[in-house]
Write a protein that binds this DNA or RNA. Sequence first.
DNA 1: TTAGTGATATCC
DNA 2: GATATCACTAAA
Length: 172
Amino acid sequence: MAKILTSEFFRRDALDVAPDLVGKILVRTLDDGTELRERITETEAYRGEEDKGCHAAKGRTKRTEVLYGESGVIYVYLCYGVHWLMNVITGEIDQPQGVLFRCGEVHNGPGKLTKFLGVDGSFNGGSFCGNDRIRIEDDGSRPGIRTAPRVGIDYAGDYWKNVEWRFIADGK
DNA sequence: TTAGTGATATCC
DNA sequence: GATATCACTAAA
């Protein structure tokens, strides 16, 4: 039986939450009641100001403000003027941690995932908990997880771009 | 491999 | 005000 993840689930270290999110199901409820489901197959952890790949590395700004917020909050960010990338905030308040939803079972690529789900900037600052438009369910499956270096952050320097904070469902 | 896209941050 | 940067995708 599927259960909806609560803020308790997210109130842990990003490095604990990210692998746990792999295999969970994103459920997006459209305005007309249609439910879109997509199993998460890949996540990445972004953790703290010391993480050069994390947006919060440059300090607390209007844009990164939500990263410092409460666990379970949605951080949606427009990348390259075209693609919405979706994250969920983890950890305690004032800890800039987050987990990026990198791809789903059907739609690979963070931009395609949000496009399919109809996620845009209006979701930024919302929450996965008690939200009637989007939530995350756990159907009890526990896929095998493998790790890999994060992608798309070449600018972050040798150490941060090679750290294995990317979590992928086994079999991909 | 390269173009396109627009919000944000960082300069004048 | 202007420019540089970017957690990407699609087209070629």
